[in-house]
């Protein structure tokens, strides 16, 4: 995966957080992981990708980050339902925004949200994923890109 491709998703993360009331987000250096040990926090929103690119993009974050993020977009109800909704919406927004670079053939699914241990995320074993670390307030999250062209 090229630096340019990764930058599309980095820009998407920064753009999302810049539309909240706490804009000070930092993105770390992306790194590769084996798919038998995927990166994940408490709650994850996964978007399936099809077309010329195939695979998935997901946003994963601790519950406490998502509660604060809800408040930061003006949503006072930090119930579990809204936490799941938000993690899917962040994944959807970052993936959808990537179409400005990849075009309409970069097909994205509706988000699937999961909770729990990393072993509940099943990624193609023959591929590796790039992890983009996200630092916001005192919390860590990640955008994970698992794509082949």
């Amino acid at each position: 995966m090229s630096q340019e491709t990764l930058q599309v998703f980095i820009d998407g993360v920064v753009r999302y957080f810049h539309h909240t009331n706490d804009k000070d987000v930092k993105v770390g250096t992306p790194y590769l992981v084996e798919n038998n040990n995927p990166a994940a926090y408490d709650v994850t929103g996964i978007i399936g990708i099809s077309g010329p690119y195939r695979g998935c993009v997901y946003f994963t974050a601790p519950r406490i980050l998502l509660k604060h993020l809800l408040l930061s977009i003006g949503e006072l109800d930090t119930s579990n339902e809204h936490i799941f909704d938000l993690v899917g919406e962040v994944a959807n927004t970052i993936s959808g925004n990537a179409r400005s670079r990849f075009g309409h053939e970069f097909m994205i699914s509706v988000p699937v949200m999961i909770e729990g241990a990393p072993n509940q995320i099943h990624l193609p074993s023959q591929m590796r994923s790039y992890v983009i670390p996200v630092y916001w307030k005192a919390y860590h999250a990640a955008v994970v890109i698992c794509l082949e062209q």
Partner: peptide, 12 residues
């Protein structure tokens, strides 16, 4: 109101 930011989708 959509995250799909490519021109073709907007035009469609």
């Amino acid at each position: 109101i959509s995250a799909l930011s490519d021109k073709a989708t907007g035009i469609d």
